[in-house]
Nucleic acid binder design. Sequence first.
DNA 1: CGGTATTTTCCGGACTGTGATACGATCCGC
DNA 2: GCGGATCGTATCACAGTCCGGAAAATACCG
Lengths: 265, 265
Amino acid sequence: MEQTVQKALNLLEALVRSGQPRRLTELSRQLGLTKPNVYRLLSTLSVLGYVQKDPATSLYSPTLKMWEMGSLLVRDTDLVSVANPRLKKLCDETGESVQLTVFDAGFVVYVDKVDSDHPLKAITSIGSRTPATVTSTGKAMLAWMAPEALDLAFAHVKRFTPLTLMRRRDIEADLEDTRKRGYAINRGEFRVGVCGLAVPVRDRTGGVVAAIGVWGADKNILGPRRDELAQAAQSAARDISRALGYLDPEAARPKSAAKVPELVG
Amino acid sequence: MEQTVQKALNLLEALVRSGQPRRLTELSRQLGLTKPNVYRLLSTLSVLGYVQKDPATSLYSPTLKMWEMGSLLVRDTDLVSVANPRLKKLCDETGESVQLTVFDAGFVVYVDKVDSDHPLKAITSIGSRTPATVTSTGKAMLAWMAPEALDLAFAHVKRFTPLTLMRRRDIEADLEDTRKRGYAINRGEFRVGVCGLAVPVRDRTGGVVAAIGVWGADKNILGPRRDELAQAAQSAARDISRALGYLDPEAARPKSAAKVPELVG
DNA sequence: CGGTATTTTCCGGACTGTGATACGATCCGC
DNA sequence: GCGGATCGTATCACAGTCCGGAAAATACCG
């Protein structure tokens, strides 16, 4: 374990987390290092472009280099390849079939799936699309996307089974329930007896970009195992979202003050 | 200059940029370091959480720690405080009054300004709002925002001067011109004889979050200095956008393959 | 202008990081 | 299935880098 590297990265981390320019002495105290040591480390980090010193005040602050590097990590991450191993694991854990969908113009599009060995015949294939309001994954996305998305989706509402929700207010109520519940369910609104349970997946911008769900026969999904399935799906969604660069807002530190005044007037 | 730190960060950078898991030997060759050296550095970075090793294949890849750290740098950056110094500089460079606005529900809201000592009386104050379609900053935002924004803005169109654009198709044509031109102009559509020139400001998500513009008497803005003003404004907008974490897409490396298939079906 | 705190430089010594070498494990072509 | 090449990991003596005390240089403040 090269301690110089450890010191340097700890120092950089401290600087980033403090969110404001720091003095040399202060940092040396905080990290328990001698001043010359911190001085050398800061100089090095400065040459490498991770830190800048205000020549007037001798205050050190991080540059945006970390942000640029970090962005490279998530910019081209591919939803499907990131999600697939986790979908397999979810399928293993639950024994149910699992699917991954994205939202497109009011429909859900199936982009990946992992089938269990349950007898139920697969009813969707990758690339196919289904009105978002009749699927659990579609509801999971609609519930946490901008309300305009529902306008797009509602345009394609169509009766598939006696349980299909047709009226806008029924759908809106269902989405409200979904938000309260924390996950979406489909009680057989697309195919009779075929139920589903789904949760949204977010990317680095915090927006909903996909949903994952488990589906199968009525009693397998919404019966006694329902809570267990919901938790397993949520855990998988968390992992995938994290891998896409989503940062849990719970990690919100107290930190400084000023936010962008989005609504000033 | 602590070379261990330099080696470690170069290594980390190489790993991030390569966008795929790498072998130890390969990295040692690329960086011109001995294998044991790279091995130790990777182990250290691994302990510190910046790198992970696939135990099965011994392939090393960066974790998302860099992304998390980087996000801290831009998450709470405040538009106004970041932009203000650059606005002052723009005012100095051009000698014209400068303003910073955000878009809100079809209006522009003035969030900061720097006045030149031109005789022209200031016509807007911080916090006030004006229909987006009659201002240069509003047009700059509308031209590069999602088309829905125009719906919001068009609802508040109102005649202020004989030059105010009233018809939707005229406004759309003007925005199209704006996009071609690369900056927005106001020929006196809000106050007679008062003209403006503006460009959009983007944040880390790539979306338009604000606009900056210069304004003043007709001939000062749209006369012979027009090109010069446009370039100065664009340069300022670039700086502010960068400080907000916007990454120029020109930095697009060739890199791997698969993108999220947004429209599969 | 003098006193204090902070940043920066210097330098000898200690210890950390270094790389040649070696050992297993794994992979690959035959 | 076998031998050779390649790779990752462990070891260790040495060199040199990094360390920290001390002091010089600079900024700060009344």
